[in-house]
């Protein structure tokens, strides 16, 4: 139920689900406020916060100047002082302007202060390509953030996760980064009426299978599921693992899946070199080497700044056909 007594819509979009999550957080906790570029009057660059300014007022839905480092840092300071800020950064590319604050303060203060200063901050941002936005709006840098101790990194890939990941993120005493893939906002889906908050420590099996593990997250999940459907028509029963949380990685879920299927394809929209896909492959090699019947395959973006032209952009990104081809190589 939404707070105003209306039954919450069950059929909804990822964008609406995220908005409802924000609305619920703002209603249920006075310490929560939303801050970022154009989150107020404009309604959010991707329309996520549309209507929230009218409902909660300018003190709690704060439009900021174009000062990523300034307002992300202000979010950290407000969190230190007992608030529960949700800071929106338009895209992961822009978040690089706030990298100093995220790494040198948010991720570090608790440890550097000997445990005195937890930073209960949530930072949301879009990531990924697929909308022909060119090289400065399309990259997938969540893997960089997943490199950093002290952060929790989330990648909601479904409408339900968009709806139910924010509350546990806000309940976490440490900084949490939420990466919303740009192509998911219009995705629609069902939300079960009484879904429990998402368990942020565990990956989830989106499709059980016995022949091969397709391990992915975020915007690549729909592609992996489509690939699994295609493989099924050939009699290959693929299991699809949605990591959900990119840091800390749920090694046990990955290992358990590989122990069942003995084959793995890792799908990650980031560049292959030094990627999360590389990390996951290494962990499989470390922890499940003797379970493998074939080398681990990776499907990542081409090593190129994401281009504008549709054909080039599509060619740069992992596609369903690439996943199917990788699965074929693995099954051999």
């Amino acid at each position: 139920m939404a707070g105003d007594g209306r039954p919450e819509e069950r059929g909804t979009t990822y964008r609406q689900a995220m908005r409802e999550a924000l609305r619920e957080a703002l209603r249920s906790d006075d310490r929560v406020f939303l801050m970022g570029e154009d989150v107020g009057r404009y309604g959010g660059c991707f329309g996520v916060s549309l209507g929230l300014l009218e409902e909660f007022g300018p003190a709690r839905v704060r439009d900021t100047p174009l000062s990523e480092s300034g307002f992300v840092g202000a979010g950290i300071g407000a969190a230190l002082a007992g608030m529960r800020p949700v800071v929106e950064v338009m895209t992961v590319n822009f978040s690089l302007l706030a990298l100093d604050q995220i790494l040198n303060n948010a991720a570090t203060l608790l440890h550097m202060s000997g445990g005195q200063l937890p930073v209960p901050l949530v930072i949301r941002m879009t990531t990924g390509a697929g909308r022909q936005l060119g090289a400065q709006h399309s990259h997938s840098l969540e893997g960089w953030y997943a490199h950093i101790p002290g952060l929790r990194v989330l990648a909601p890939a479904t409408v339900e996760d968009a709806r139910h990941m924010l509350a546990p993120a806000l309940a976490d005493p440490d900084p949490v980064l939420i990466f919303e893939h740009v192509t998911l906002y219009n995705a629609s889906g069902e939300i079960a009426p009484s879904t429990a908050p998402v368990d942020l420590d565990h990956a989830v099996t989106r499709r059980p299978g016995t022949d091969i593990s397709l391990i992915t997250y975020g915007g690549s999940l729909p592609k992996a599921l489509a690939a699994a459907d295609e493989l099924a028509t050939e009699g290959i029963d693929a299991e699809v693992i949605d990591l959900r949380t990119l840091r800390p990685l749920d090694d046990a879920a990955v290992t358990a899946s590989v122990a069942r299927t003995h084959r793995a394809v890792v799908i990650d929209e980031a560049w292959r070199t030094g990627s999360l896909a590389a990390e996951i492959s290494a962990r499989i090699a470390e922890e499940a080497f003797y379970e493998l019947d074939a080398p681990v395959e990776r499907v990542c973006s081409a090593e190129v700044p994401i281009p504008y032209a549709r054909r080039l952009e599509e060619a740069a990104l992992p596609q369903t056909a690439d996943i199917v081809a990788a699965a074929h190589r693995t099954v051999g």
Binding site: G70, G73, G77, A78, L80, M83, Q101
Partner: peptide, 14 residues
């Protein structure tokens, strides 16, 4: 500096 602005913001909001 940004952190200080946030501390001040929190105090003001409360």
């Amino acid at each position: 500096l940004p952190l200080a602005a946030g501390l001040a913001l929190a105090d003001r909001m409360r």
